[in-house]
Design a protein around this nucleic acid. Sequence first.
DNA 1: TAGATAATGTTGCGTTCGCAACAAATAGGC
DNA 2: GCCTATTTGTTGCGAACGCAACATTATCTA
Lengths: 149, 149
Amino acid sequence: MVASATKTKIAQELEDAWVALFRAPPAVVERVNARIRSEGFLTVEWYDVLWALARAPAGRIRQRDLGKDLLIARYNLSRLIDRLAAEGLVERVPCPADARGFDVVLTDKGRDLRAATWPVYAQALREEIGSRLSTDEQCKLSRLLAKLV
Amino acid sequence: MVASATKTKIAQELEDAWVALFRAPPAVVERVNARIRSEGFLTVEWYDVLWALARAPAGRIRQRDLGKDLLIARYNLSRLIDRLAAEGLVERVPCPADARGFDVVLTDKGRDLRAATWPVYAQALREEIGSRLSTDEQCKLSRLLAKLV
DNA sequence: TAGATAATGTTGCGTTCGCAACAAATAGGC
DNA sequence: GCCTATTTGTTGCGAACGCAACATTATCTA
């Protein structure tokens, strides 16, 4: 690969957008997590897997597809599923159509825990995001972030 | 604390905004980091500390203020500074005005490494963000994310 | 259909994060 | 001044991440 001529200046708007993107979201996620944990429930990382499964047909998704949906790298998802399975919240079953793969299946325990967590989670989202952004702003934010993926 | 009556529904816009906020930024940051690391340079987490110091008067900021600027939790910043100091990129010196505190000072080595990293970093930002969002969109994104902090 | 290539998932290893508990110093209320 | 509460920073510990290397299976190509 030829080293391209890299200019040493970037636009202020680009710098500002990057700094905001880099710093703000983790802080917001941490606040949401802190609220949920203080009530004794799951982190959002765990929750989101259960949520994705709860929406999937038969509470079942192939691990590969789960990673793509949740934007989680393979090696991280692999161990995240390990932890969820160790808690009995999901199960890994061989994928019928592909001997390499696994379907991740939501257990009853996982389904119940997700449902129990939801009110606390929803409340955290209302307070951390709903109270700070109008509905219109929420839509704009979704749209802008979608362009970056 | 009295358990507040928590509704079990939230608006679709809020859910979408949260999901985007939760998933997209880490993926973008990881892509930027991968580019920079593939060229043998610093992760953005390290870079941003050096950057903040390079902008500060005399290349020097109190650790507490650095944490607030960068939105890094105390216990994480403490160890991040440890690592940077172990590499000789910064130094910790007692804060003259407050015996509890430390000023973090950029070393010559840190200054040089930051400068050397910049072209690669800037190029990564142009490609990952500049090419996906217009200047106007970049401004909107900054503004929306600022509201969440 | 054999051989090379790609996709899927796991694991060893070191790094980094997050909580809780802690020590030390300052600031405030009386 | 004195006692308490707050602020600042560190550390032990376990959880989670990220890279590189790996095994296994599927897919493509000739």
